[in-house]
Amino acid sequence: MKFMLTALLANVLVMTAAPAQEALQRYEVVGDAIPSSLTGVPGDAERGRAIVLKRENTCLLCHSGPFPDERFQGDLSPNLAGAGARWSEGQLRLRLVDASRLNPATIMPSYYRVDGLTRVGATWRGKPILTAEQIEDAVAYLTTLRQ
């Protein structure tokens, strides 16, 4: 009993020192795609648009897209216009979840990955950039970008 209590306390200490990593949803990669939704349900394209446009989510640092009202867009990477015609839903999902699987040299961050990173700031440590729900919403939106 005493032993268990110390073990428990030790656990609590560890957890407060470094917040436990949120468990990521498991997913299966088939070819260059993740065919199934991370949440088991389809995302919402309208919410997804807001997610892609929101500054903190960083997409527009590098990408431009069919967003005429957005003044500050990046040009380090392909324009998002037509992404939904070039790629299937599953392909888009893997590109958001972990683009480095397809191109280890890519500068596109992995939006749903917490391992293999170095010196992540305390605010962001142990968390994916986007949640599974946000990934699904963004994917749903990107599939609508057909031209």
Binding site: R55, T58, L60, L61, C62, F72, Q73, G74, D75, L76, S100, I107, P109, S110, L117, T118, R119, V120, G121, W124, R125, K127, I129
Partner: peptide, 21 residues
């Protein structure tokens, strides 16, 4: 380094002169 997993050189060498946001 960092959550975005970028190196200084990714921006300042490879993408110098490009537009970030």
């Amino acid at each position: 380094q960092g959550q975005l997993n970028l190196a200084c050189g990714h921006c300042h060498d490879d993408n110098r002169g490009q537009r970030l946001a």
